[in-house]
Design a binder for these strands. Sequence first.
DNA 1: GTCCATC
DNA 2: GATGGACAACGCTCA
DNA 3: TGAGCG
Length: 830
Amino acid sequence: MSLKEYKEKRDFHKTKEPAGKAIKHKGAKMFVVQKHHASHLHYDFRLELDGVLKSWAVPKGPSLNPKDKRLAVEVEDHPIDYATFEGEIPKGEYGGGHVIVWDKGEWIPPKNVDEQLKKGHLEFELHGEKLGGAWLLLRTRIPGAKKNNWLLIKRDDENASAKDITKEDKSVLSGVSMEELEAEMENPRPVKKTAKKSALKIKPQKKTKFLTFKDLKGPELAMLSETPPVGEEWIHEIKYDGYRTLCFKNKKETKLLTRSGLDWSNKYLEIQKECAEIAAESIIFDGEIVWLDEKGRSRFEGLQNSLEAHDSSELVYYVFDLLYLNGFDTRNLPLKDRKKLLREVLEQSDSEKILFSEHWDESGKSVFESACESHLEGIVSKNGESHYHSGRNKNWIKIKCTNIQEFIIGGYTMQENNISLGALLMGAYNKKGKLQYIGKVGTGFDAKTSKSLVSKLKKIKSKESPFDEKSPASKASIWVNPILVGNIEFGAWTGDKILRHAAFKGLREDKKAKEVYLEEVKIKKESVKEITKESKSEEVKLSHPDKIIYPGDKITKQDLSNYYTSINKWILPLVKDRPLALLRCPNGEGKECFFQKHIETDDMGILGKKVESKLKNKKEEIVYIDSQMGLQELVQLGTLEIHSRGCRVDEIDYPNQIVFDFDPDEGVKFEKVKEAAFALKEILERLKLKSFIKVSGGKGLHVHVPIAPKYDWEQIKSFSKSICDQMEREHPEKFTTNMSKSKRKGKIFLDYLRNGYGASAIVPYSVRAREHAPVALPITWAEAKKLKNANSYTLKSVPKLLNNRKDPWAGYNKLSQKIKILDQYKSLSA
DNA sequence: GTCCATC
DNA sequence: GATGGACAACGCTCA
DNA sequence: TGAGCG
C-alpha cells in the first residue's frame, strides 16, 4: 500500500463523509500523554470536549513521534492535516485548535466508563470503516479487564445499542454480514487476528495486481541453526550454493532478479528464455540459480566460472517457491500448498533448466545427515504451514554441513614479492552496525583469481581502516572500501570470534556488503532438549542488569537475579514442576504489568508442556520451570511475581496442596489476620491436617496444606469452601467469604478460590510487585505469633535471614496428607 | 521483554 | 525503522 | 446479563 493509500484508508472518515457529519468542536482540547513502551517511548492523545475528558482524540490516529513531530489535529483554520511542531514537544495541553469529532458519533458508555475515562483508564479504537461509516464499531478495553468490548452505535439514534441492529440494517453495514457481525460481537477478537484467520484456502480468492520486487520487499531468508528443527510441520529442502534469484514473468516481460533486486536477466539468458515460456500468464518464482557438477551438486565455483565466461548454458534454476500465479498473490498460502501449485506448474512446463526443488517431510535429522553424507552444503528446513514473509525469520531455518559464509573484504596484504595476494582481511557487520574484523584468509585463490582480486581491490583502496576495532593494524595492511563480499569456508570460530582454517571460495557479486552480518545461531528448543538436561550450568544473560525495577529502593534486575540465585535451594522445591502464572512488569514495579500463562521461548530453562485435563475435558499449554536456569530466565523476562497452581504439571487434575488466603480489608488490624490463620490451623488440626504459613508480602497471610494428589479440584474447592464457611458462621463479624468490596468492610476476606482448576497463588519465596520488593516468605507458626505485618520481609532482608535458617516448612513436599471427610464421603457415595 | 504486524 | 498491540481465566456476586 | 473482583 502506498503512503497515500494508507492515509486515505486511515482517514476514511474525513474523506468519505458518511452518514454522520464531521464538525469542528470548538471547545476541544488535546492532551499529549507520554506512554512508556518496553522498547520505545511514544505519545498518545486524549481529547477534552466541553471540559470532559472524552477519548483518545483520533481513532487509530498517529502517535506523536518525537522525531517527526506530527499531530493529527486541525490547528486554527488550517485544513485538517498534521500540524508540525518545531522543536521538542512538551508533555501537556494543546488547546485552541479544532479537533474533528463526529456529531453523533459519540458512543454510549457502559457503566463506569466515564469514570474510567476521567482516570485515563480506557482506550478505544474505531472500526467504522468496517461498517461503511453508517455505524460506529468501537472496541474498548479497560486495562486489566478480561476482554474487549464491542460497541456498535447507530449514528442517527443516540440510544441505539448493539442489540438494536436488525436484519434490515444489514444493508448499511456495507460488506459485513449479520452473521459475521454477531460472531464478532459474540466472540470479540483483535482486528489483526481476524486478518490472520481469513487466510486463503488453496484457491486464492481475490485477484491482485502483479507484484513488483518492491512490493515483495525482498525474498524470505532463513535463520542459521546448528540442528534441524523437530516437528511434523517442517519440510526439508536441499540448500543450494548459487545465486538466489526471483523470476518475475507477466505478459509484457520476464525478468530474473537477484536478492537485492538487480536485474540479471542478461546474465542468465538461457534460463530467462525458458522462464518466458512457462505456461502461465503471470508468475513469480523464488529459487536459486546454480551450476551442477557431475554428481548433481551445486557448486558455487562452477557458477562463477560460467558467469565470468558469459555462458549460462550450463546453469539451472531450482525453484522452491511460488509467490504469484495468474493474477493471484499466493504468498498467503501455506508453504505446502504453494509448493503443490508450483509442482503442477513446473510439471506442465517440462523444462530442463527450471527444476522443482524437492522437499522431504521426514525427520529433519535424517535429511540433514544424508545431505552431509552426499557432501551437500546443508539443508533448509521450512515450516510447511507458514506464509511467505520477506526477510529473515524463523519459518525458514538453514543448517549447514560445512562452514561456508559470506564475509566482507575490508583490506588485504601482499606477499613479499609484492606481486601476488597475501591474505584478505575479512569482516562482517555486528549488531551495532560496525564492521567487525573476523580474521584473514590467505588460501583458496590461485594465481589467476589472485590477480583479478588484486586489480579489483586496488580500485577501491582507502586510507582508513574500515574495521571497528580489534583491527589487524600492521604496516602491510592495505585498506579498502568494504564493498566486496567473498565466500569463505572455514573450520571453526575461535573464542575471540576469529575464523580458523579459512579459505577463499569466490566473490559473491549478488550480495551487498551491507547485508553481511554476523549471524547468530538460533537453535530451536525442541532440538536441544536432550542437551539441556546435562548442561544445566549454562548461564542466563540479563539484557539490562542495571535496570532499576524497584524504583523505591533502586533494586536492579541484577539484584533480583542475585536474590533468586541466593535463595534458589529454598524456592526451587516449591516452584518446580508446577504450572506457572507470571506477573511480568518489564519496566519495573509501578509500571504496566501483565499476567502470562503461556509463553513460547527459545530459552532452555522455561519449559512448555501440552497438558490435557480429563476432568475439564480440555487441552492447554502450560509453562513451568525445573531449574535454577528457569528461575533466571523468568527474571530476564521481567517477572516480578511467580504464581503457581496447586498441582504438578503431570497431574493437573489433582492438586497436591490447598491454599487459604486471608485478605484483610483496609483498616483491619494485623492481629486479627493472625487470629484468623490460627483459627484455621486449629480447624485443620482437628481434621488431622498439618498446615504451613507464609506471609503474602502484602497485607495478608497464606496457609498451605500439602495433600495427596487424589482429590480433584471440585472436591478440594468445596472442602476449602466449607472450612471458610464454617469460620464465617462462627465469627461473621470478623470474616467473610464474599469477595465484594461492600460486604468486606472491616472484615477479613477468606479466599478459598485459589483452589480451583487453573487458579494460582503466589509461590513461597517469590518477591511481589510492590514497593520495597516484599517477599512471600514461609515462616513457622511460632514466628507467626510475633509477627507485626505481612510485608516487612524483603528482597534485601530475606537472603540474610535464610542463612543458617532451619526450614520452617520442613517436610512440606514429602507430606501427602489425606482428607478423611472426603474419603468418607467418597466411600459413602460409592 | 519479546514477538509480531503494519506501515 | 517506527509504532503499537498482546501477553489469563474463571467462578462468584451484585446490580 | 454484564461488570467487578480476586
